[in-house]
Nucleic acid binder design. Structure first.
Length: 475
RNA sequence: GGCCCGUUGGUCAAGGGGUUAAGACACGGCCCUUUCACGGCUGAAACAAGGGUUCGAAUCCCUUACGGGUCACCA
């Protein structure tokens, strides 16, 4: 059974990069009907951020990446918070010491930092590797210590599902710390212990871990455990070409949602960053992604987050929303933009749904209903409609005269009335409808035509606006 | 700096020895349309550079350049 895990540390919010990692973990598991596990890696008490864990849980919930095992819901391999598994890390470390694959180290941080070169790069010199057993036995009782893994000579090769075989010379690797002086495991060590304990089969993570993966494989080998499959993901970068991160302008998922992006669109877009299906389809629901996702189609090169494409993807999802769902989502924005009594908000929702990329844009599309905005008479000029302010002055007069007496105030009747009038006086439909729409809305573009706007506004308001328009043109 | 990875239009990306080098976003034009949008059509726009290997290289190899990652008692 395929088992994957998303293993964030509670140090901040989730941005699109984190979400993509979680998503791929989810998809790899779900594509095979496997299990997706959430594990919180809080072994660094210094960096712990209050509320970060809840924020992560919330983001996963909003985006529909439901985990099968994890904090809050438990599972057969719990607990799923590393600080609660503290007792599990010492035994394997001791086992490695017994077999000569790890050793105690009492070096102080001062001594360690004195080992650094001018660039601050250092490699442990194995000062404590050959300490006499008796000395170790007594110092353990009185001094802080760490446990380090003894990296063997040679080269280490591992296979990555995306990058292929990668070989690194072991002398590039330091005798890494397994257990810190506070008794907590380091990230690398806890990762290996827990992934094995939780029977994780696939590890997807950013390729910033590519060079440290040999350390993991060495650990698995030392402990005699089978290796999981590694799926390293190309980095996501910002416009400056830097790895996307909290410090590099990445915005959080809840923030994106606040901006009007739909969770399913964010998920859809995240999937496309570094992966594409064989048929090049671009719009997917999470279920559809689950069907077609294949880790072998993940690309090796980094990609850049592009809000324009996200916006387009969002627009596609908005259009696909059931009308009543869109109406419910749009209602607050429509109500804020249009306060006129008797407004049919469902109608406004129907009109705006196919025309917005972001739900919260629907308000500004219809805000002219409440109040006619100030506009320039140059709006009456339209080359294709063959209109200009002079023609508009005449056709507006015709429109007013034909509508004043119109009893049946609906857009069909309005359209017929003005069309006949225009024709009688030698004008085209466009020459009367363009000025009509302009005078009624005061905007260069509106979400529907002149006659619909007139119906929406009602007879009195419409005639009033036409009079205002005419007055502007007569000055 | 050592090591690792990468480099196809502005962006996301197909293509893994023979293609007129797909498609999508954004941008321009045209059509449709009483506006906008949708839709349709269309335009401009790319294989980092140099060497090999080959009848033939975006594709394989080497070098260079550029970009990124990584070298913690952080994850």
């Amino acid at each position: 059974m395929v088992r994957t895990r998303y293993a964030p540390s509670p140090t901040g919010f989730m941005h699109i990069g984190n979400l993509r990692t979680a998503l791929y973990e989810y998809l790899i598991a779900k594509h095979e009907n496997g299990a997706f596990i959430l594990r919180i890696e809080d072994t660094d008490q210094q960096r712990y951020v209050e509320g970060a864990e809840d924020a992560i849980l919330e983001t996963l919930r909003l985006t529909g990446l439901n985990y099968d095992e994890g904090p809050g819901i438990g599972g057969d391999y719990g607990p799923y918070i590393q600080s609660q598994r503290k007792a599990d890390y010492l035994p394997p470390a001791l086992r490695l010491i017994e077999s000569g694959q790890a050793y105690y180290c009492f070096c102080t941080k001062q001594r360690l930092s004195s080992l650094a070169d001018e660039r601050g790069i250092m490699k442990y010199d194995r000062y404590c590797l050959h300490l006499p057993k008796e000395e170790i036995a007594s110092r353990i009782l009185s001094e802080p210590y760490v446990i380090r893994q003894l990296i063997p000579e040679g080269k280490t090769t591992f296979h990555d599902e995306v990058y292929g075989d990668i070989t690194i010379d072991n002398n590039e690797l330091e005798d890494q710390i397994l257990l810190k002086s506070d008794g907590m495991p380091t990230y690398n060590f806890a990762n290996v212990i827990d992934d094995h304990a939780m029977a994780i089969t696939h590890i997807a993570r950013g390729c910033e871990y590519l060079t440290s993966t040999p350390k993991y494989t060495l650990l698995y080998e030392a402990l005699g455990w089978p290796l999981p499959r590694f799926v390293h993901l190309p980095l996501l970068q910002n416009d400056a070409g830097q790895k996307l991160g909290k410090r590099n302008g990445a915005i959080s998922i809840p923030q994106l949602i606040d901006m009007g992006f739909l969770p399913e669109a964010i998920v859809n877009y995240a999937a496309l960053l570094g992966w594409s299906p064989p048929d090049n389809k671009e719009i997917f629901t999470l279920d559809e992604l689950t069907q077609v996702f294949d880790a072998t189609n993940i690309s090796k090169s980094p990609s850049t987050y592009d809000v324009k494409k996200l916006t387009w993807v969002n627009g596609e999802h908005v259009k696909a929303l059931p009308p009543e769902v869109f109406a419910a989502m749009a209602l607050p924005y429509l109500q804020a933009a249009v306060k006129k009594p008797g407004t049919d908000y469902n109608r406004l929702a129907v009109i705006t749904q196919p025309r917005v990329s972001l739900v919260n844009e629907c308000g500004e599309l219809v805000d002219f209903i409440d109040a006619l905005p100030e506009y320039d008479i140059e709006l009456y000029t339209h080359k294709k409609m063959k209109t200009n302010p002079d023609i508009a002055r005449e056709t507006l007069k015709l429109a007013i005269s034909s509508l004043e007496t119109l009893c049946d105030w609906n857009h069909t009747a309005i359209g017929e009335a003005v069309a006949i009038k225009a024709e009688e006086n030698g004008y085209t439909k466009g020459q009367i409808l363009w000025p009509l729409r302009t005078a009624l809305s005061g905007k260069p573009s509106t979400p529907c035509g002149a006659t619909e706007i007139a119906e929406l506004l009602g007879k009195d308001e419409s005639l009033q606006r036409l009079a205002i328009g005419l007055k502007k043109l007569e000055v």
